[in-house]
């Protein structure tokens, strides 16, 4: 029986470590349904979401996946609004010295009128495995968000459409995905967001999340994804210029993955 569970664990771990995207605790707590969200972390989720940010913002996060140090993820995002554009930068490092993946990216987003936002991102991926060597490659991402109704945003995002990869024989893939979803803002306090996601070679997923502001500066969040079935919860404190967000993801077999981020608006 132990063996059975061990093998089950390995299967799941294998699937899970393949998906190393990190979108920060705010989006994660919403079940990672962030395609139609506007936040500094949109720089890594859907670049269009940074177009309306008005202040330069930086945020850095740390995730400890399934309580294993080896699967930890360090990430940082930065956005800078310019005259007509907003530029963003992301950094994401996953793994340990023996196995390390680094993703660095820049993005550019623009608002075409008050309703339509479009963003693109360019990423540089580095993979290094001790005793095996290093590999690099680049990928692109494109996203848009559209304000259909006063309270409703629809969005879509495509990543790595040309399926670039490290090399023909490397198993590590740069996921190619298409996401679309919507966010409905019920009130100043309440927002619900959803996202459909299809990653190439994986089953389609549906995610949904909810954010509720208990008081003006404290938000509670919860979300789920159905495939694999995961539950998410978290909170955020936005006090003056400081943002602290926390999230925990729960996988029925593998357990909990907590993450935290600290952000500052200039």
């Amino acid at each position: 029986m132990t063996k059975f569970y061990l093998s089950l664990l390995c299967v799941f771990l294998h699937l899970e470590i393949k998906a190393q995207e990190n979108y920060g605790p705010k989006i994660t707590a919403l079940g990672t349904a962030g395609v139609a969200i506007q936040d500094v972390w949109s720089a890594s989720k859907n670049q269009a979401g940074i177009a309306l940010l008005t202040k330069p913002t930086i945020s850095a996060g740390y995730e400890n996946r399934f309580g294993l140090k080896e699967l930890s993820n360090k990430s940082a995002v930065f956005t800078l609004p310019l005259k007509n554009y907003t530029v963003g930068a992301i950094f994401n490092s996953y793994g340990i010295d023996a196995y390390n993946e680094i993703k660095t990216g820049i993005s550019l987003a623009k608002a075409f009128g008050p309703k339509l936002l479009i963003g693109i991102g360019l990423n540089y991926h580095q993979l290094s495995i001790t005793n095996y060597g290093n590999a690099n490659t680049a990928s692109i991402e494109v996203g848009l968000q559209y304000n259909v109704l006063p309270k409703l945003w629809l969005a879509s995002h495509i990543a790595n459409p040309n399926q670039s990869k490290y090399s023909d024989d490397a198993e590590q893939v740069i996921p190619a995905h298409i996401q679309f979803g919507g966010t409905y803002i019920f009130s100043d306090q309440l927002m619900i967001t959803t996202e459909f996601e299809k990653v190439l070679d994986r089953e389609a997923d549906f995610k949904t999340g909810l954010e509720y502001k208990v008081v003006k500066f404290v938000a509670l969040r919860g979300g789920i994804s159905v495939n694999p079935f995961k539950q998410y919860a978290g909170f955020g404190v936005h006090y003056q210029k400081i943002n602290i967000d926390f999230a925990v993801a729960s996988h029925p077999v593998l357990g909990y993955s907590p993450q935290i981020s600290l952000g500052y608006e200039f």
Binding site: F186, S187, Q189, I192, L210, Y212
Partner: peptide, 10 residues
């Protein structure tokens, strides 16, 4: 009841 429109149960 999170808003007049939305209620949640946990």
């Amino acid at each position: 009841s999170l808003s007049p429109i939305v209620s949640a149960v946990l």
